[in-house]
Simulated scan of single mutants.
Amino acid sequence: MVIGNKWAGKLYGTNTGNLYVTLEGDDDALKGRIHLNDPVFGLVVYAVNGTSDGQGLSLQGEPEKPIEGVELGKLEAKALLNSRGELEGEWTTSIGSAGTFVLFPHDHISEQEEEGDATQEQLHTARHNFGAVAVDREQITALAEEVQGDFKQTQVVVTVLAGTEKSRLLDDFKKALFKDERATVFKIFARERQTSGIDRIVVIEFGPEVNFAMTQGADEAWVLGMLEKLKKSVESLERKYATSFKKFGFGINQLLFVGAIVYLPSLTSLGVRTALMVGVLGIIGFVTWVHRRYLPFAALFLGNKPKGFFAKSFPSALSWIIAVTSAVAATLLATYLQGLLPIGQ
């Protein structure tokens, strides 16, 4: 059973209350119970049947015991797995009541958590930002499996944004078929309750704006060690661009802008200084456009990455061409505006 045996959460809508859901069986033939504690009508237990496709859950059921003077009706509920491993969905009944609900995986509860001992623990968080990356489906699967190795009691969730965002448990992600060749975002999420009552969490995300890994938990040694392991695993996926100096935290655009500011005092008039800044900003804009078009911060493939010498060397070679060309263009512009370049004279 992939979807999980025990879930707890909240119900909203025409009725409200706390939910506890137990499921068993295969994903295409689930059976279980929904326990709803409604503050108005009290405790209601539904016997349910349903199915799961790895992305979500569909349930149908009827109340096990009637409540005197209260009409309950048959229940239908559908939910989708989100990127945090939770189930979010809508419910309706045959008498017209309806609403939304959210469920959290609840397979493992520690005795210390029930006693409230989590307040005695300290939460540790570590984060690392990566440079540009190129990742295909096989590599994101391997990375998710590496994370899964540290999470024995819960399944890793893999989220793919390709037109629409879809979250799948790792086993279902391996079997999923994608019509798109590329994705905009890859995200790996894992959360597991520890004996201290604090969740142990790993998040890895690759996207157009930021590539990062985050670990969190009560055990500082595990938090730091897990992050170091992820850094080593992702290191082989990073692209080395001459236009970005990851070690120093800036790129060719920042260097061009700072160089223009340093050069401004050597120019005599406001008009010439304005021409320099406009020209440099134009070069920066061109560099930014070429980067977005040909050197994305995250090149994410839902199949295999292009192979061969040209495919591997082209991004690095293009980054050098961009860096050298933009630097030469800015230098020639500054030299011309100072009157040291005999063009048009």
Score class of each variant (00 low, 15 high):
residue 288 T to K: 08
residue 308 G to W: 10
residue 224 L to G: 04
residue 289 W to S: 07
residue 258 V to L: 11
residue 297 F to S: 08
residue 243 T to K: 05
residue 325 T to K: 00
residue 293 R to I: 01
residue 308 G to C: 06
residue 286 F to G: 13
residue 252 I to M: 03
residue 251 G to S: 07
residue 266 S to I: 05
residue 285 G to R: 03
residue 319 S to M: 02
residue 312 K to R: 15
residue 231 K to L: 00
residue 256 L to T: 01
residue 266 S to Y: 14
residue 227 L to H: 04
residue 330 A to Y: 03
residue 324 V to N: 00
residue 330 A to S: 10
residue 253 N to R: 10
residue 290 V to G: 05
residue 299 A to C: 05
residue 261 I to E: 13
residue 318 L to A: 03
residue 273 R to G: 08
residue 224 L to P: 02
residue 269 S to E: 15
residue 331 T to S: 13
residue 262 V to L: 14
residue 263 Y to Q: 10
residue 259 G to F: 09
residue 260 A to P: 10
residue 309 F to Q: 12
residue 304 N to Q: 15
residue 307 K to D: 14
residue 292 R to V: 00
residue 250 F to I: 07
residue 231 K to V: 04
residue 312 K to F: 13
residue 334 A to M: 04
residue 311 A to V: 09
residue 310 F to I: 15
residue 267 L to F: 09
residue 262 V to C: 04
residue 247 K to E: 15
residue 312 K to N: 14
residue 321 I to Y: 06
residue 316 S to D: 08
residue 311 A to E: 12
residue 274 T to M: 12
residue 237 L to P: 01
residue 255 L to T: 13
residue 303 G to D: 14
residue 314 F to N: 02
residue 283 I to Q: 07
residue 270 L to T: 15
residue 242 A to K: 04
residue 224 L to E: 14
residue 246 K to L: 09
residue 268 T to C: 09
residue 297 F to C: 00
residue 250 F to M: 09
residue 252 I to T: 09
residue 318 L to S: 10
residue 254 Q to A: 08
residue 246 K to N: 13
residue 258 V to S: 11
residue 244 S to P: 00
residue 231 K to I: 08
residue 268 T to E: 15
residue 327 A to S: 10
residue 242 A to Y: 08
residue 300 L to Q: 02
residue 300 L to K: 05
residue 239 R to P: 04
residue 283 I to D: 07
residue 261 I to L: 13
residue 310 F to C: 09
residue 320 W to E: 02
residue 284 I to N: 09
residue 232 K to Q: 11
residue 278 V to E: 10
residue 232 K to T: 11
residue 267 L to R: 07
residue 312 K to V: 12
residue 289 W to G: 01
residue 322 I to V: 15
residue 314 F to E: 09
residue 317 A to M: 11
residue 248 F to G: 00
residue 317 A to K: 06
residue 233 S to Y: 00
residue 306 P to N: 02
residue 315 P to E: 01
residue 301 F to P: 03
residue 273 R to H: 09
residue 235 E to I: 00
residue 270 L to E: 15
residue 247 K to F: 13
residue 228 E to H: 02
residue 235 E to G: 01
residue 233 S to N: 12
residue 322 I to R: 04
residue 290 V to I: 14
residue 292 R to H: 06
residue 240 K to G: 09
residue 261 I to D: 08
residue 334 A to W: 00
residue 331 T to Y: 14
residue 256 L to K: 06
residue 232 K to G: 14
residue 315 P to R: 01
residue 277 M to K: 02
residue 329 A to G: 05
residue 308 G to M: 08
residue 264 L to H: 02
residue 278 V to P: 03
residue 263 Y to H: 07
residue 276 L to D: 04
residue 334 A to N: 02
residue 226 M to Q: 12
residue 318 L to P: 10
residue 252 I to Y: 02
residue 295 L to I: 05
residue 318 L to R: 06
residue 229 K to W: 01
residue 225 G to H: 07
residue 255 L to Y: 07
residue 266 S to Q: 14
residue 239 R to L: 13
residue 322 I to N: 05
